[in-house]
Simulated assay, not measured.
Amino acid sequence: MAKIHTMPGVGSALEGPVVRTIGVADLKEALRRGIDDFLAMPTHAFFIALIYPVLGLVLAGAIFGNNVLPLLFPLVAGFALVGPFAAVGLYELSRRRERGEEIALTRASQVLRSPSIGSIAALGALLLLILFLWLATAQALYHTIFGNYRPVSLTGFLQEVLTTRQGWTLILIGNAIGLAFSAIVLSISVVSFPLLLDRNVSVATAVQTSLQAVGANPGPMVLWGLIVAVMLFVGFIPFFFGLAVVIPILGHATWHLYRRVVAD
């Protein structure tokens, strides 16, 4: 395990939690503990995560039915933007297991009784706003490049995107913009939701602490973002059902990452 160092002056500067510096070994340990939590609570985690593949299928069906195929990939990619908020129940399960408390599925709802539930909801609303901005940006980009072209089938849409200059332009610029949105969300939320659940702090303090955590650990946090992106991609491949495993592991692992980044 990498040695963890406390950043001098961070806590006093924020008048809040103290941020530690971490290494790659800490990311591995957070993932290992996330997997361990999932194996210890598979039934609970599965039923919490089951709504996500179902939601994905519903969204995909709605898209096909309304001939708005250009928004399919932005919706799938945008899932990562609200993931930190959606996983709050998983953080609660990991928190309770860490303390040796009961970990029944019903206990995940205890998050609703948290003193910081208002702050959690407010930050979740901010992520939803960012998601809507991403979708609006993606739609505007598509119309700028393709004009009024409306694909009539998934096959035709994929052919247009993957085999034309306009399609590759859309892919390159769209991914660059998506990366910027993802970086913003990672910076403001990587430890903020677990912190709000764990302590009675304000949204401003939680977001400041998250920003400080990224600033103190740029390399590990970029790597963490890549790990999340790759795992979500793998989860999406089998018709979204892989998320039933990926989401719980990432949710539990995020709690343990928070515990390693933010001092007690």
Rank of each mutant, 00 (worst) to 15 (best):
A140H: 11
A140M: 14
L141G: 10
L141I: 05
Y142C: 05
Y142H: 14
T144W: 13
I145K: 05
I145Q: 01
F146R: 05
F146D: 10
F146Y: 14
G147S: 01
Y149N: 12
Y149R: 11
R150V: 15
R150M: 12
P151S: 13
V152E: 15
V152P: 05
S153T: 15
L154D: 00
L154K: 02
L154Q: 06
Q159A: 15
Q159R: 13
Q159M: 12
Q159I: 10
E160I: 03
E160D: 10
E160K: 14
V161I: 15
R165E: 10
Q166I: 00
G167S: 04
G167W: 07
W168H: 09
L170R: 11
L170V: 00
I171Q: 12
L172W: 12
L172I: 15
I173Q: 01
I173N: 01
G174L: 07
G174P: 03
A176Q: 06
I177P: 03
I177G: 04
L179T: 08
A180R: 08
F181Q: 02
S182Y: 14
S182H: 13
S182Q: 11
A183S: 12
A183F: 13
I184G: 03
I184A: 11
V185M: 10
S187G: 15
I188P: 07
I188H: 06
I188E: 09
I188M: 09
I188C: 07
V190D: 06
V191S: 04
F193H: 02
L195H: 03
L195Q: 04
L196P: 06
L197I: 06
R199T: 10
V203T: 10
A204S: 14
T205V: 03
Q208P: 01
Q208M: 09
T209R: 00
T209N: 06
T209H: 01
A213H: 02
V214S: 09
V214W: 01
G215V: 08
G215F: 10
A216E: 13
N217G: 04
P218N: 08
P218Q: 07
G219I: 08
P220F: 10
M221C: 07
